[in-house]
Each structure stands twice: as C-alpha cells, then as structure tokens.
C-alpha cells in the first residue's frame, strides 16, 4: 500500500468548553509527512490494531464530564475505518497513536488546518 494513498483525519469535540474553531476535522496524507513521522504513524496503526477496533472505544470508568472525544479515520483507497475515542484513552498503543496523529495534524506553519 502506497503511503500517498493513506489519509488520516482527526476530529475533536467536547472538552471543558465549545470552540467552533477547534472542532473542524483536520486531515493529513501520510505522503505529505516527513518519512520518519509517517513510519511512526504506520507502526502506531499496526500496534493499536486500528483496523480491528470497534467504532467506539471508551474507558471502563464511571461517567465523568468535559472529556474530549476524538474521531480518528483512516482511508486507504476504498478501505475506510473510523474509531471514536473517549478520553482518557486506556490502551497505551492507542494513546500513542492518537498522540502521533494529533501532532501530525496539528498546526503547520503556525496555523491550524
């Protein structure tokens, strides 16, 4: 699978306050990233067994409030998988993946995209 055809999208909602500007989904193609970063994300997807995850991954704790929810979507050609994560994310692999994707889709050149 070519790296160029893999697109990753992250959207975020919830949290202590509603910020319309931060709720916009952000996406990145692995091919656009520095090779090292792209490899780390590919590894992260494998370690977290991303494609086998159910569509919602929640913690085992009681209810809570102000937690953020992330929707992480990976598209590889016709294959598309979306997982909604409610923090705190308990699985360390998934946590690492989320952190990698957050960094990759974050501000670029000082702006959020």
């Amino acid at each position: 699978m070519s790296r160029d055809s893999v697109r990753i999208q992250l959207s975020q909602e919830g949290g202590l306050a509603a910020f319309p500007g931060l709720a916009r989904p952000r996406s990145v193609e692995l091919g656009e990233l520095p090779a090292e970063q792209a490899e780390a994300i590919e590894q992260g997807l494998r370690d977290a067994r991303f494609h086998e995850l159910p569509s919602v991954v929640e913690g085992s704790g009681p209810r809570g409030a102000d937690q953020r929810q992330y929707t992480l979507t990976v598209e590889e050609g016709a294959r598309r998988h979306s997982v909604k994560l409610v923090e705190p994310v308990e699985d360390p692999h998934l946590r690492e993946l989320l952190s990698l994707v957050r960094r990759a889709t974050r501000r670029r050149g000082g702006h959020w995209n």
Partner: peptide, 17 residues
C-alpha cells in the same frame, strides 16, 4: 500535568484531571 501541551481539564468520574 496530564499529557503534553494538553488543552483541557475534565472529571473522569472519580478524579479531576
């Protein structure tokens, strides 16, 4: 000090973060 550059605070049902 939850996370890095982490922009939030929450109650997880037991504790404040």
């Amino acid at each position: 000090h939850y996370g890095r550059d982490y922009d939030n605070a929450f109650w997880d049902g037991r504790r404040m973060v």
